[in-house]
Design a protein around this nucleic acid. Structure first.
Lengths: 223, 223
DNA sequence: GCGCTTATGTAGCAAAAGTTACATAAGGTA
DNA sequence: TACCTTATGTAACTTTTGCTACATAAGCGC
């Protein structure tokens, strides 16, 4: 068990009863995985609740023509709600999960999690909140996929995920995967943005030059 | 309060403690609404948990160009999970809700629901299950929107929602709304299906003639 | 039946997205 | 530096979707 990062560092741990803490420390398992490792395959049965301690997980679907589309990311401190989902309903996992960088994951076995859920209010709370937030995120995503064009979704993505200095370290291939389209389409759209001086492109990097312009693209006011 | 349909008829009521039943019968409110009534507007704050007793509710989003897209339906006996979602996170409602036919809805005020959630295991259970199932549904939908063409989504929709005798009572306009596209596109696709003798169209009705053929369309094996 | 409303059938063009096929460039490494 | 891998830039072309504009038809009330 790595000393530096365990479940005890997560916010909800503080609110557990001593019995709960005990159960958790005895039952939880820790896993480390490297970038690009696939943690779960679609249709796999889920053995417990996953919680990310370090790194980042990417949850994605793969369509029949082989295109990937990122559904969401799981950041440190977050629980993989999809696994909860399966755990409470005995469903098979509905997507793929892969590590995006070196990532450490704690696994709480299904039986233990269900017991904690019955005993501990903080676990109930965590569960319902996590599920709720996921529902909200998914609805937003669905909304966007339905209502926006790729151009608009791309602009939105750039705005939302750029750093404070207006930079994103991401390849066009990754962008394409997230939006569920091909790299060529992304390149075409980005060239458009470059031509209008909204962004500057570099190898594995995009720099925002005119966030205002981009947000007008999102709302459909600008090309 | 209508005598014929109350919360006491729903499955989870049986598992409530007598205190819980008491609280519920005192606090719940009943509303009737007619077809096409809009129950909730996007961005409205949610005053409680909604449960459908009779009829059907449609949850939908509206994109910037005015197109609607049905996210899900809420059938009798189901709880509107979106409202739970807001209720536990103090979020604003993320979509529109309208009655599709004469519908009766029970409302459990937010404070009461939260209290029941703390006291009653059956309510915790109902909540987590409902949220989980919604997550699953939304993911499936997102998956389809990402990965399938309209032709394939339409074929899938027809297969999933046809009656046992292979009939659907639905207008092309409604189909278009669900898939988030225009009626003309649906008409074009349907004509295609008609030409291949997969379906027969009528006024407000579609009859499946060749479900096999349709399922091949879904998987992209057939035109 | 007549007229009104609602639903479907079709055509044609414009815009967006998907596909294929290469050229070019940036970084890392032997 | 030369070579190799990975990432980006571009063009041409196809397919799908979106949009506009009508024609036709079904059901309903009078």
């Amino acid at each position: 068990m790595p000393a530096q990062k365990t479940l005890t560092h997560l916010p909800f741990y503080t609110d557990l009863s001593s019995t709960g803490r005990d159960l958790l420390s005895k039952g939880a398992k820790y896993n480390a995985c490297e970038a690009a490792d696939i943690i779960l395959h679609k249709g796999q049965s889920v053995s417990g609740a996953y919680m990310v301690l370090r790194g980042r997980l990417r949850v994605y679907s793969i369509s029949s023509n082989g295109n990937e589309a990122t559904l969401t990311w799981i950041e440190p401190g977050e629980i993989c709600v999809f696994s909860l989902n399966c755990l409470f309903n005995n469903l098979l996992y509905p997507a793929w999960v892969a590590a995006e960088k070196d990532t450490e994951v704690a696994t709480i076995p299904a039986a233990l999690y269900r017991e904690l859920f019955q005993r501990e209010f903080s676990v109930q709370d965590l569960t319902v909140h996590s599920l709720s937030i996921l529902v909200f995120r998914l609805m937003e995503e669905l909304d966007q996929v339905h209502g926006l064009r790729h151009k608009e979704r791309l602009a939105n993505f750039l705005l939302v995920r750029a750093s404070a200095t207006g930079e994103l370290d991401i390849t066009q291939q990754q962008l394409a995967q997230h939006l569920g389209t091909s790299r060529e389409v992304i390149a075409r759209l980005l060239q458009n943005f470059v031509a209008q001086a909204y962004v500057r492109t570099g190898r594995g990097r995009i720099t925002l030059l005119d966030p205002e312009g981009l947000s007008q693209v999102v709302t459909g006011k600008q090309a």
